[in-house]
Nucleic acid binder design. Structure first.
Length: 489
RNA sequence: CGGGAUGUAGCGCAGUCCGGUAGCGCGCCUCGUUCGGGACGAGGAGGUCGCAGGUUCAAAUCCUGUCAUCCCGACCA
């Protein structure tokens, strides 16, 4: 079984690539650093998208769409923002090809007056529009989201975790008051936290980024951080309080109730296809992908078993009725009736693709009015009565969902440690990795030193710090509370 | 972008040192037997050896360049 997948303990990176390939989620494309998302992977993304989209709508947001191309001049309007993205932008300089000896080449006469940047994120082009949309406090708040692709010219890429082009959603909101904008940034962080935990079954730490880790152009960046099986952290989502930086850069003002003209307050927030990488590295095992039922494209697969035509028709009739029951119960179920594959092959295939539940039915089961039920997460099998299927399966799927979260929580808890001095800190990172809480003196210099010496960064500071004074593990200076470090993806 | 490794059929690999016109396993196609954990037999298809130059009578093999992937650094969601 699962002979094509490298064991995690042997080579975690290779295991990850093997799972992505064998579960047919994505493959490398002819374009460096870009990926082809295959139907299995995209179906998973669609389920994530659908749920997130609902959550955005429930919190009062609407979808819109802004252009892929951003005039170069827009990007230079917010100084911090430019600095953050300048090194990783794709630039469109020409608009035409001409025939040449080797096929086609760029027509030098088609050079653009103003070059266009392929969006690395859309703050600038959106705030340019907001200037026209906002005159009065009555026009606020604006609560928009867009589903889009963005491009960041990365040096080193990994499928889903870091690709040059990726799919994401970016929320961009405009508010009359600072408090309202801060509340929005927190509200969306909470949406991300509950999506990660309740749907992905991926426990996350929430917190606030240090100055050096925060989004270019933001005053505060809030994040959800997840711990992967190999002890490395993954930034899974961010929500930014942008203050009035973009309003000032794009001159977006409104007249308030008091008659005065004021700059608008802003937030932005996003999660990307990187979440799929997090999902894989949270639950999957040496047999392949493990998917949480709430997001799995197929929640239950029915594998029929037969030896001859007579058995085939009996088993298929039985399977079809079970499929109908599951459909009625609102379960995403599939009857795998492909005749060219044997049952054993199908078992292995659905296993590697992460289908949460498998029902196997053969002539014996038809005679006894039974089904064989197998859980992907625990690999345990049991025989149950067919009559209980439509009642039991939905409950079992929810059990799997909560078991996955619980297992991941326990693992993350084991991977979360305290370090009281620098030696211990380094030792934990070099042996087990994971989240390490330690005292820090609050300076960027110390943060930088720790990063250079240990490769660990401050993943986040607590949102609601409790006083727990101590001494910085590097400088010995006073620290009000420990902060969370980890090596990260 | 720097250091190391790798690139040969859809996937995994051998062949490269010592140049002589490409092979193995899985998968794929046909037929038959099979079918409760990746079936078996027989027959068959599939590769400009990552790409581009060069050396040579002759290049998967030697030389140069380039691209991609993996690992390690710098950068990042």
């Amino acid at each position: 079984m699962a002979k094509k997948i490298t064991k995690r303990e042997n080579d975690y990176s290779q295991w990850y690539l093997d799972v992505v390939r064998e579960a047919q989620l994505a493959s490398h494309s002819p374009v460096r650093g870009c990926m082809v998302i295959k139907p299995n992977g995209f179906a998973l993304w669609e389920n994530m998208q659908r749920r997130l989209d609902t959550m955005f709508k429930e919190t009062g947001h609407q979808n819109a769409y802004f252009p892929l191309f951003i005039p170069k001049s827009f990007l230079s309007k917010e100084a911090q923002h430019v600095e953050g993205f300048a090194k990783e932008c794709a630039v469109v300089t020409h608009s035409r090809l001409i025939h040449s000896k080797d096929g086609v080449s760029v027509d030098p006469t088609s050079k653009l007056e103003e070059e266009l940047i392929v969006r690395p994120t859309s703050e600038t082009i959106i705030w340019d529009s907001y200037r026209d949309w906002i005159q009065s406090y009555r026009d606020l708040p604006i609560l928009l989201n867009q589903w889009a692709n963005v491009v960041r010219w990365e040096m080193r890429t990994r499928l889903f975790l870091r690709t040059m082009e990726f799919l994401w959603q970016e929320g961009h909101t405009a508010h009359a008051t600072e408090q309202e904008a801060r509340d929005e940034a927190h509200r969306m962080l909470e949406v991300y936290r509950s999506f990660a935990e309740d749907y992905m079954a991926m426990p996350v730490a929430t917190g606030i980024k240090t100055e050096s880790e925060r989004f270019a152009g933001a005053l505060d960046t809030y994040c959800i951080e997840a711990m992967m099986q190999d002890g490395k952290a993954l930034q899974a989502g961010t929500s930014h309080f942008l203050g009035q930086n973009f309003a000032k850069a794009f001159d977006v003002r409104f007249q308030d109730r008091d008659g005065k003209e004021k700059f608008v307050w802003a937030t932005s927030w996003g999660v990307s296809t990187r979440l799929i990488g997090g999902l894989i590295m949270t639950h999957s095992d040496d047999n392949g992908l493990v998917l949480p039922p709430r997001l799995a494209p197929t929640q239950v697969v029915i594998v029929p078993i037969w030896r001859n035509d007579d058995e085939q028709s009996r088993v298929m009739e039985y399977g079809t009725s079970i499929l109908a029951s599951l459909d009625k119960a609102g379960i995403r179920a599939k009857l795998d009736d492909r005749d060219q594959y044997k049952p054993g092959w199908k078992f292995a295939q659905h296993e590697v693709e992460g289908t949460p539940l498998r029902i196997a039915i053969g002539p014996r089961d038809v005679d006894n009015n039974n089904v064989e039920l197998a859980r992907r997460d625990t690999m345990k099998k049991e025989i149950i009565s067919r009559d209980g299927v439509e009642k039991m399966i939905p409950d079992l799927l929810e059990t799997i969902q909560s078991d996955l979260l619980e297992t991941a929580r326990e693992r993350t808890a084991k991977q979360t440690r305290q370090a009281s001095n620098y030696e211990e800190f380094k030792n934990i990172l070099d042996t087990d990795g994971g989240f390490v809480y330690a005292h820090w003196d609050g300076t960027a210099e110390t943060e930088e030193q720790i990063k250079n010496e240990t490769k660990a960064t401050i993943r986040c500071l607590p949102l609601h710090p409790e006083k727990q004074p101590g001494k910085c593990i590097v400088t010995g200076k006073d620290s009000p509370y420990p902060v969370m470090f980890a090596r990260s993806y």
